[in-house]
Amino acid sequence: MTEPRPDQATSTSGPARFMLALCVLMLAGAVWLIAMPEEDTDEEPVPQAQAAAECLAAGEDPEPHGTLVERLAVQAGDDWLRLYVADGRRWVYLCEGNQYGHYQGFGSIIEEPPTQGLHFFGGWDAVAKPKVLMGALPAGATAIEARLVSGEVLRGTHDGTYFAIWSPDATVEGATVTATGADGKVIATAPAPVG
């Protein structure tokens, strides 16, 4: 009986060595991925006032509409919305953004109000920008809300004259909008406008 030589007893076959090396490399790669620092993004937080000013400056409408005065500011998590109304011609401008700046701004003519009921602004924008409804409260209204098609109810923000109903995560298309008075009685109900 021949005894194995010491160098043969401790040696590892070629395929086994390859598998061992591969396992070591995979383990090292996994450790590197776990310890890897987070990727830097090019985006840096922008103060909301600065982002809103940039949104207004980037307005696409070539006609002057007078000085835009901020009437509403709404916050939902990191997202925000600001509504401006011109002091001259009947014009409304809306800016939306988040902590990294503005991502949308659009303006619309303020149409003549109906003789009664809710007064919406934006016309076709109510469909083109389906995350927001804007308009003017009817006389005597102190609250406004929209019941979405899903059944969710969004409470609007208002300044006593102008209102915005907005959610960055829900569409207001097809909603039923209700304005109520201080006593909770319904003053006006209307479907959200469609284009």
Rank of each mutant, 00 (worst) to 15 (best):
M1G: 15
M1F: 13
E3Q: 11
E3C: 07
E3Y: 14
P4A: 00
R5L: 11
D7Y: 07
Q8M: 14
A9Y: 05
T12G: 05
G14M: 14
A16L: 10
R17E: 11
F18C: 07
M19Y: 05
M19R: 09
L20V: 12
A21E: 04
A21L: 15
V24C: 14
M26S: 07
A30T: 06
A30M: 12
W32C: 09
L33A: 13
L33R: 06
I34W: 15
A35F: 04
E38N: 13
E38Y: 04
E39M: 13
V46T: 13
Q50A: 14
A53H: 00
A53M: 07
A53N: 11
A53G: 08
E54R: 05
G59K: 00
E60M: 04
D61H: 08
P62Y: 01
P62E: 05
H65N: 12
G66N: 01
E70V: 09
L72G: 10
L72T: 02
Q75S: 13
A76M: 10
G77C: 07
W80Y: 12
L83P: 01
Y84W: 15
V85D: 06
V85T: 11
V85W: 00
A86I: 04
A86R: 03
G97V: 03
Q99T: 11
Y100K: 03
Y103R: 02
F106I: 07
F106W: 15
G107Q: 01
P114Y: 14
Q116V: 09
Q116L: 04
F120Y: 15
F121G: 00
A128S: 15
A128D: 14
A128E: 11
P130H: 01
P130S: 04
V132H: 08
L133S: 05
M134Y: 03
M134S: 06
M134E: 07
A136D: 13
G140W: 12
G140E: 12
I144A: 06
L148I: 00
S150W: 10
S150G: 02
L154Q: 05
H158D: 09
T161S: 11
T161F: 05
Y162P: 00
F163R: 11
S167C: 02
P168Y: 14
T171G: 11
V172Y: 08
A175L: 09
T176P: 06
V177L: 02
A179K: 01
A182E: 13
D183Y: 02
G184W: 02
K185T: 15
V186Y: 01
I187N: 11
A192M: 00
A192V: 06
V194Y: 09
G195M: 08
